[in-house]
Structures are given as structure tokens and as C-alpha cells.
Design a protein around this nucleic acid. Structure first.
Lengths: 141, 141
DNA sequence: CTAATTGATACTATTTTAGTCTCATTTAAA
DNA sequence: TTTAAATGAGACTAAAATAGTATCAATTAG
């Protein structure tokens, strides 16, 4: 069962690193060193996060990326949506045609309920909630 | 989010059909007609279920497949395991090497908890629980 | 000027998913 | 006893999703 794919995972780890690196700009090469993630792939990931407004980017020497929101405002469901598409449920593989009455498909219903719960539990996880913060929780500003 | 793949889904539908077709033997061609599932693929699926002891098979003319267990003893987690591999959790993509201390990886832990819940909820669903049974629930013998 | 950075985008490789195809064997029934 | 309808076994293929690489252009600190 794979709730998150590799790019989502990498994104989370990169964001956590940057959250601790407060108000500084972090370059891909620094992240590559620390996190051991393939450089070009990580670049693509961060560029996507930039386009989606999660990160801000700075070009040129000593450039890099920076969080555009507070860690507690970055939900991993946001990231899942960026890399794995919308968290929509109930995609029945028997589209209209076959399933005689969609709303009566018990299987679809039961699975859908479980997925719904997964989504709401994932919705509780933020970048902030994944940080190993100091005793004063300074990171949560 | 895809909790079950196509073959698992087909398997469930086929088993439900066969559960209603009590004590009769059902051939692939009959299932193909009723369920509109690609024949050779369904055959492969049923053969796998036979090998795993979920179905019994009968060769020759007027042969086919039959449930080997009662519908309420067939869990969809069994089927998921057949077609999607073991429901094991916590497969960290940063194997041994990178994650500095595996048991402290908060991300892995939180995701693992959610997966654990999914597994136990899936564990409640049986073929019987998906049937539209008659008023007397005869199917559950 | 130049080296280190991101932007944009096309390309490639690998893995998983979703099937098909074929030949052998079995068996009920004409 | 022949035959048609079934499964057994396993190799093969196709499509989609995942996991990356590669390249060239633009920007900018020093």
C-alpha cells in the first residue's frame, strides 16, 4: 500500500529541512548533500513546489528556495495533490456503463469510506508536525 | 489513492457472483458474460485464487470454479495479498543507509499508523459482507 | 566576467499494472 | 470414441505510472 510516492516523500523531507533552516535560502545542492536525493529530480520537485506557491525561488549565485508559508500551514495533503493528483475518491473502475447502480455498489462504498478516513487523517499532518522541534517549539511561529 | 488494483477488484466481483451461485460450479465464460471482464485476464485471476486455496477448480466440459471457503471466511485482505503482495507496512524508501534513525522517522511513523488503520478496516470486509443477501441471509451458512 | 544558481522542458529508464496468446490436459456428452 | 468446452501453465506484450536525466537559457552575487 503506497499512500505517498517518492516525489512526495522527497518533497516532505526537503521542506522539513528548510523549515529548520529558518529564513535562510536553501539551494538544491545543499539539500542534495544533506538528504542524499538525486539532484535533478529534487530540482524538478522544488520547481513544482515553487509554481504551486509552496516555495519561493531565488535565481543567481547564492540563490535557492525558501518556504513561502509557515510550516504549520503546509499540509502533506497539499503535497500529495501536487505530485499524485487530486485526492478524489470513489473512482469506480466500472464507469457508468457496467455497474448497474453506482450508489448501490457496496464494494465501492466500503472502500470509499476507508479512503475518506485516510484523507482526513493525512489532513492532520503538516510539515510543522513532522519537525523535531526545540523545547519552546520556536519553529511554529 | 488506490487501495485495490484491478485484479483484486475483479477477483472480488467474481467471488461475489460465485457466492450467490451457491454450490454450483461457475465457468470463466459465464463470468465474462455477466461481469464484462476480459476473459483471459479473469482466467489468470481465478487460476491464482485456485492455487491459493480460495477457489477449487474443475477441468473438462462443464467445468469451472467454485468457492472453497464460506463467503464470510474470505477476507478481501486475503485477495489484496494475493494480487498486491503482503500487506506489510513501514517500507521506508530510505532503507538502512540513509535515514539516520529509523525508529525516530516521524514521517514513517505517522504514515505507518494510518496504513495500520487501513489494514484493520480492510480486514473487516469479507465477500459475505459485500453481498446483497435475501431476507434470511441464507448465503452465510 | 564568471561560476553558481533556478526556469523550462524534453527526454529516457524502470517498474507496475493490465492484459494476451498458446499449447497441453481433462472431461462430459453426442 | 470423437469432440467441444473447460482449466493448467507459463511466456509474451502493451500501456501507464513512477523515477529519474539532460540540456540550454536566464539570472545574479562577487
Amino acid at each position: 500500500m503506497k499512500l505517498i510516492t517518492r516525489d512526495t516523500d522527497y518533497a516532505i523531507r526537503a521542506l522539513c529541512f528548510m523549515a529548520e533552516n529558518e529564513n535562510g535560502v536553501t539551494s538544491v545542492s545543499e539539500l542534495v548533500q544533506k538528504l542524499k536525493i538525486p539532484g535533478p529530480f529534487l530540482r524538478k520537485i522544488l520547481q513544482a513546489l515553487n509554481k504551486k506557491g509552496v516555495l519561493a525561488s531565488f535565481k543567481g549565485k547564492s540563490g535557492g528556495f525558501k518556504l513561502r508559508r509557515k510550516p504549520k500551514e503546509i499540509f502533506i495533503t497539499d503535497l500529495i495533490e501536487v505530485f499524485q493528483g487530486p485526492l478524489k475518491l470513489n473512482r469506480c473502475i466500472f464507469k457508468k456503463k457496467l455497474c448497474p447502480s453506482m450508489d448501490k455498489c457496496i464494494l465501492k462504498k466500503r472502500i470509499g469510506e476507508i479512503e475518506q478516513r485516510v484523507v482526513s487523517e493525512l489532513g492532520l499532518i503538516t510539515v510543522a508536525s513532522l519537525l523535531r522541534r526545540g523545547k519552546n517549539g520556536e519553529i511554529f511561529k
